[in-house]
Structure formats: C-alpha cells, structure tokens
Design a protein around this nucleic acid. Structure first.
Lengths: 204, 204
DNA sequence: TAAGCAGTTGAAAGATTGTTCAATGCATTG
DNA sequence: CAATGCATTGAACAATCTTTCAACTGCTTA
C-alpha cells in the first residue's frame, strides 16, 4: 500500500503533510530526477501515496503541477530574502547577508537545486522561473542600492547576473566534477573532490 | 513530402548523407532540444525525412539511437585530439594545442554542446558518456606527461577534471547568463552579455 | 528474365500517457 | 438523523508512444 521508495526521498513527513503538499514534493522530486517529460503522473501519485485523480483535483493538469512547484520555489527565495532583512540591524540587509540566507535555503533544499539545474539547461522551455527569480534578485539589488549597500556605479543587470551565476553556477557544475571523478577507479581518485569557482567577467 | 523544418537545423546536407547519418543527426538535434524522453521517434523520422520503421532498422530501439549518437560524439572528441597531434611538430601535442582543437570541434558542432549539457547535468542517467570522455581525456593527459608537456607532480585525475570542467563549464553556464539577461526589458540590458570564467580550485 | 538482397515504407499491435468522471468515504452542519 | 460538501479513489477513455513486420522498391547477379 505504501509507495515503493527506492529513491531515498524523505518519506517520514508523509503523515504530517497534506496530500497537496506531498504531491508538490513528489512532483519536485520527480521533475528534478527524471525531467518534466520523463515523469508520468502515476509516478508522482505513487511517491505521494495518492491516486492519480487527486493530482488533477489540486492542480488542473500536469502543467499545473509544474506551476505549483515553481510557485513554491519562488516563495522559498522570497522567504530567504525577507529572513535576511529581518535578522539585519538596519532595515535592509547587505549583500553578504542575503547571499548567506539564500545559500542556507538552497543547502536545506537540495532538490530545489536539482530542479533549477534542469530548468536552466532546458533552454526550449520559456524559462519563466528564471525570469521570476531574476526579478526577485533585481528588487533585492535595488533595495540595497537605496540603502547604500551596493555599488551604484555598476549596471544593475550586471549585478543580478553576477549574484545569481556565482551562486548557482558552482552548484550546477558540481555534478559534472563528481561525475568525472567517479569515472575513475576508487584508488585513483583524490581524497577530496576538487572545488569550483565561477566568476563573471563583466562585459568590457 | 519534405520534412517540415521550422527548427533552423541544417537541411542542405540531406542529399549527400545516408539515411543512417540523417537519422543520427536528427536524433542528436531532437535530444539536445527536447530531451530524450521529450522526443518521439516520429519527430526524429520526420526531421530525417524517413519512415519511423527505418530508425528501428538501423538502431535497434530508441535507446539504441541514443547509443548511436553518443558513439558518434565520442568519435568527434577522439578525432579532435588526433588532429591536434598530427598538426604538432613533436609526436604529441601540448595542452594548449589540444584545448584549441577540441574547442574548434565544439564550435563547429554547437548541437554537441547542447547535447552534452543535458547529458552531463542529468544525474539519473548512468553518465556513461562522461565516463568515456573522461577516459579519453586521461589518455590525453598521460600522453602529454610522457612527452613532458604536462606537470608530473599534480594528480592526473585532477588534471582531467580541470581540463574538462574549464572547457565545458563555461559553455554549459552561458545559457544561464543569457536567460537572466533576457529576463529584463531590452533597454535595460547591457550591450554585451557578460562572459564567464570557470576555475577549478584543486583540493587542498 | 528470374532470383535475391539491401533499403525503405507505413499500417498494426500493444503499452503508456494525461485527463475525465461517477462513485465512495467522511466529516460537519442543519 | 438527514443533508451538504469536501477529500479521495480508481476505472475508463482518447491520444500518443515504441516496436514489430509484411510488403514494396530498385538494383545486382545468376
């Protein structure tokens, strides 16, 4: 009766979460793991421990389920930014504080990172989620500008690109490093996987 | 009768290429654009200008078509490396020459980059293609070691990781930069998209 | 010409998919 | 208790997918 779970995904919260939340979590997990086109609704229903029909009840369609997932992710980012502000002395947090807050959120939600990675590399899709996060980041930058926490001379779009790519780029590329290292026999691997640094060379 | 082609993919070579090659090219294009699960065999057949059945004839199955594509890609990399050697004065080319040769090949085959981007960042798939390319790169590094063209003190696996990630990482992340920039209205965008630099910080 | 063969076709079969919907359980309210 | 409403189910449906295969083409060979 319980959903088969060879995925290692957290199932302990099954009892406490509403069906709607479990469906959203399962969709996030499946989309991140197998991609949107690669996940049948039945797989989501199975992981969430519900019937297929319930997905159509809460979210209108499969596309609606994707929208629900992305809305939730946008909320996570917004909450992380607000948290940084509320814990700051002044009315607006500085760059480092916001970076740390978002980094902590991403660290707590590795599936969000996996989902974003896919979303970014799948260029065909309109990339609406990235647009939304970019808007969020722009507001953040402008708030810091007004508070005198960010350089007012640099182009605001450049600041957004720098902030997002520096943060996400390292996370997106890490699997590549791991895959390459894992391609070698264990006794040839270095003890510690190399770390990445992604820099944005602002346009000359 | 001719396949509809709103994709902008090169169709001029249709006449000169064998059906098998056209199927392989179409599969590469479709997989890179829509993903493996997102591409029906009919789309490949349509772009290649053949009947669906012919795909099953040349490649055993859809999975077989993927294998055919990846085998071809591995061949491209191997050829690029050999080309660097043959154009070198000594018996073995140095790092820069090999980098340039592979970079030129990737520049001539942007669809290969798109395909690799998907393949690499998809953790679920076994990542066999990356393993093969890593092996290829290792041979390359060892050849250069023997020729005295590469540092013999650094860990060989680290050298492979550095070479691959520096080269591919920038290409993989560029769409992220473009997506973010395009998320803003045109009059706010900088004239030139920012460029990326990806560095591998070798393990401490 | 007849026979054979590789290349190619497209219809058919069988499996899987997203969506819909009548029916059930289970509370809460009148 | 009766009735109303929401949560949930799972079968049914239509569409689409992959795979298979008998048949057709054009060409080479005996």
């Amino acid at each position: 009766m319980t959903a088969t779970d060879d995925t290692g995904f957290d199932e302990a919260a099954h009892d406490d979460l509403t069906s709607r939340a479990r469906i959203r979590n399962a969709a996030l997990h499946q989309f991140a793991a197998k991609g949107f086109a690669g996940t049948p609704l039945r797989a989501i229903a199975s992981e969430a421990g519900v019937a297929v029909g319930l997905i159509g009840h809460y979210f209108r369609s499969k596309e609606g389920a994707r929208e629900g997932v992305e809305q939730w992710i946008v909320g996570l980012f917004a909450a992380a930014l607000e948290r940084a502000d509320s814990q700051s002395d002044g009315r607006v947090a500085d760059v480092a504080a916001r970076d740390a807050s978002v980094a902590a959120m991403l660290n707590d939600n590795p599936l969000v990172v996996d989902y974003l990675r896919r979303q970014v590399l799948e260029l065909p899709t309109d990339g609406k989620l990235i647009s939304r996060l970019a808007s969020l980041s722009l507001e953040s930058v402008e708030a810091m500008r007004n508070a005198g926490h960010a350089s007012a001379s640099r182009h605001p779009v450049e600041q957004v690109v720098t902030a997002m790519v520096r943060q996400l780029g390292r996370l997106f590329l890490q699997p590549l490093v791991d895959q390459i290292v894992d391609a070698f026999p264990e006794d040839e691997q270095p003890t510690k996987h190399p770390e990445l640094r992604v820099e944005v060379k602002t346009a000359q």
